[in-house]
C-alpha cells in the first residue's frame, strides 16, 4: 500500500507544523509542510493531497482573534480558489484535521460549527489532559482506546455553540475533556467533527505525543504508558488509504 500524501498548512506564527508532519510520517503518510503563501500560488496542491492538517500556533499573532486572518486567507485567497479546493477536499470525503489554531480556523471558515472564545480564566493554559472519545462517525477517532492523553496549549479554547445538546445528539462531539474542564468549554468539548466525520477540529495536541516517551510517565519503560496521540494520526492515515 502506498503512503498517502499529507499537507500540513502553516502560516506566519504557526509553531507545531513540524510536530504534525513528524506525527503524520510516523503514522505512515508522506508529509509536506506548505506555508499558506505557497498554497495561495498553488491551490492545486490541495487537490493532489489525501490528508490535510492545519497546524497549531499563533497564525498572524492571533492579533484580531485566534485564526481569523488565516481563515480569511484560506477562504478568499487566490480569488477564493483555495477555499473552494478545501471544500472540494471535504466533499470528496478526504480527511481534514485542524489542531488548536487549526480548529479555530475551521470554525471561522464555516467548515465546523461553533466558535472558540477566550479561556474562562482569561489565561493561556498549558498542561496534559485526558480525553474521552464519545460515539461519533469521526474517521480520526475510529477505534481509538480511551482515555487519550494529550497536551493542551491555548488561550482561546472555550468551545461555544448555540445548541451544544443538539450537537451531542447528532454525535458530532468527537472529543471531551475527562475530569476537570481546562477552559470552560460547553459540555467539556475538546473536539468536534462535521456531519460526514472526515473533518475534525480539536484544541489538544496529539502531535505532541506521537512517541510514548513524550508522555510525562513515558520516560521509563517500567511505567505503564497510556495510548499515544499517534493513534489518531494512524486512524486518519488508515482511513485515507482506504479511499
Amino acid at each position: 500500500m502506498s503512503r498517502p500524501l499529507a499537507l500540513v498548512i502553516s502560516a506566519p506564527g504557526t509553531n507545531r507544523d513540524i510536530a504534525a508532519a513528524r506525527a503524520l510520517e510516523a503514522a505512515g503518510a508522506n508529509a509536506r509542510i506548505s506555508p499558506v503563501a505557497e498554497l495561495l500560488t498553488q491551490p492545486a496542491l490541495i487537490d493532489t493531497t489525501q490528508i490535510i492538517v492545519i497546524a497549531g500556533g499563533f497564525s498572524h499573532a492571533d492579533a484580531l482573534g485566534a485564526g481569523r486572518v488565516l481563515a480569511l486567507e484560506l477562504t478568499h485567497g487566490d480569488g477564493g480558489r483555495v477555499g473552494e479546493a478545501l471544500r472540494r477536499h471535504v466533499d470528496r470525503r478526504r480527511p481534514l484535521l485542524g489542531i488548536c489554531n487549526g480548529f479555530q480556523v475551521l470554525t471561522r471558515m464555516g467548515l465546523l460549527e461553533g466558535a472558540l472564545a477566550h479561556n474562562e480564566s482569561g489565561e493561556f493554559a498549558c498542561g496534559w489532559v485526558d480525553l474521552e472519545i464519545p460515539e461519533s462517525n469521526c474517521v480520526w477517532t475510529a477505534g481509538l482506546d480511551q482515555p487519550l492523553s494529550c497536551v493542551i496549549a491555548h488561550g482561546e479554547g472555550r468551545y461555544v455553540h448555540s445548541n451544544p445538546q443538539e450537537l451531542a445528539q447528532r454525535q458530532q462531539i468527537a472529543l471531551r475533556y475527562a475530569g476537570s474542564n481546562p477552559n470552560g468549554s460547553m459540555l467539556s468539548i475538546a473536539g468536534i467533527t462535521d456531519p460526514t466525520g472526515v473533518v475534525l477540529g480539536m484544541m489538544p495536541h496529539p502531535e505532541d505525543h506521537y512517541l510514548p516517551r513524550q508522555h510525562p510517565q513515558g520516560l521509563r519503560s517500567s511505567q505503564s504508558v497510556r495510548p499515544v496521540g499517534l493513534a489518531m494520526f494512524i486512524a486518519g492515515v488508515t482511513y485515507a488509504s482506504s479511499l
Binding site: 509553531n15 507545531r16 513540524i18 510536530a19 513528524r22 489565561e123 493561556f124 493554559a125 498549558c126 498542561g127 496534559w128 489532559v129 485526558d130 482515555p147 492523553s149 494529550c150 497536551v151 496549549a153 475527562a178 475530569g179 476537570s180 495536541h205 502531535e207 505532541d208 505525543h209 506521537y210 512517541l211 516517551r213 513524550q214 508522555h215 510525562p216 510517565q217 520516560l219 497510556r226
Partner: peptide
C-alpha cells in the same frame, strides 16, 4: 505561572518543570 508558559511545544520536553500525571487533579 508555569501553566501559562507553553512548556511542551517542540515535543522535546522530557523532564518538565512540574510533574503531573494526566487525568489527575492539578
Amino acid at each position: 505561572i508555569i501553566r501559562r508558559y507553553d512548556h511542551e511545544v517542540r515535543g522535546a520536553t522530557a523532564i518538565r518543570p512540574y510533574h503531573h500525571v494526566p487525568g489527575t487533579a492539578l
